[in-house]
Design a protein around this nucleic acid. Structure first.
Lengths: 194, 194
DNA sequence: GCCGTGAGTGAACGATGTTAACATCATGGG
DNA sequence: CCCATGATGTTAACATCGTTCACTCACGGC
């Protein structure tokens, strides 16, 4: 025990590593503890239970994804910013399917809620999408609409396709899947243009 | 033991009842067995394991949903057939959230796959959607496109919104949610019209 | 009459999340 | 300096889960 909070970070690190590799089923308390160099009951000194630990893993994931989104958007031309943001989301979902599933598809206590939390900009990923949608509407490229709800619909389309692939219902290579996404996104955008 | 296959049906009935009420977590083998009037190990005379039992529960759900869809579509005017089909899907998802989740969002062995199984018309729900999409394109109401992929995109939009609500990320009453769906569907359709 | 087969039972196994009871140990007030 | 205290571990154990094992039993064909 060196620094206060050291063990807690070790637990989260171990949990995240196991979750990324094997998903929720493989992430047992005993294995997480072993990865952090302690025993299972010691985890309960830092987290109320397994759910709270999963919560933390998801939160770290949101931090990583939103940072990638912000970075990608920052160096894209205005007309491509929203596209780039979603490309990052899709790539993240393909690279980290289980983590993405935990973040967006599982019932979690601390999940941001539409519309209240989104209106307050508390969703780190939703905020990026909403901002870019509003920008497109502001520039007159898209017709006037509720940016929050349009952002939600776009996100639902992305998460819907990802979930279908994750569930094994959409086969094909990563490349083929990204093509399906791109065409679906184009169709959706066509209905949003001014 | 009266009729051959009687116990098997009893098991499925009990499993489905528990799953509808409490979801996958509550559906333990012992509880299913008790509901069917037997003990847990006896289930393994009829199913290889819990997964296979869940498979059967999902299959029964698909049968019920596709029948409702066909019935609704049959008595709708041509211009409203696709809308009615999706309304049924949404209502089913709201009435049976856990079952809907199992059917569309969880990784199952026997899940129909896009595009191969859909092209062969083996997905009972996908077939209805695809048929109506193709009809709209055939009538010239919608622009020419791949009916399979457009159907998938529409389904992804629906399942994406449902998953977000199921995960507690979209709050509000059933009525409000159906309004969000309706507007999202309208936006999507606007991009598909000829 | 026997006996093989299909369906069911009780006991048990290994794994899981979690709790209880106890140990260790740095630290700061008397 | 000493020791009470709180934070942080540990080991043992509990309840529950899916599943397997060894056994029982009714019954239909030879």
């Amino acid at each position: 025990m060196k620094v206060r909070g050291e063990t807690r970070r070790e637990i989260v690190r171990a949990a995240r590593a196991i979750f990324r590799a094997e998903g929720g089923e493989g992430m047992t308390m005993r294995r997480v503890a072993a990865g952090a160099g302690i025993t299972a009951p010691a985890i309960y000194r830092h987290f109320a239970g397994r759910d709270e630990l999963l919560e933390e893993v998801a939160e770290v994931g949101f931090g990583a994804l939103s940072r990638r989104m912000e970075r990608a958007v920052a160096k894209a031309p205005p007309s491509r910013r929203l596209d780039r943001a979603f490309e990052v989301v899709l790539e993240f979902a393909l690279d980290e399917p289980r983590l993405s599933d935990l973040m967006f598809a599982s019932r979690r206590k601390g999940a941001r809620r539409f519309p209240e939390d989104f209106r307050r900009g508390e969703s780190p990923t939703g905020r990026v999408i909403e901002r870019e949608v509003a920008a497109l509407m502001g520039r007159g490229a898209w017709r006037q609409d509720d940016p929050l709800e349009v952002g939600l619909a776009l996100g639902a389309q992305a998460q819907g396709l990802v979930a279908l692939r994750r569930a094994g219902r959409v086969t094909g290579s990563r490349k083929v899947f990204l093509e399906i996404w791109r065409r679906s996104f184009e169709r959706l955008k066509r209905g949003l243009e001014a």
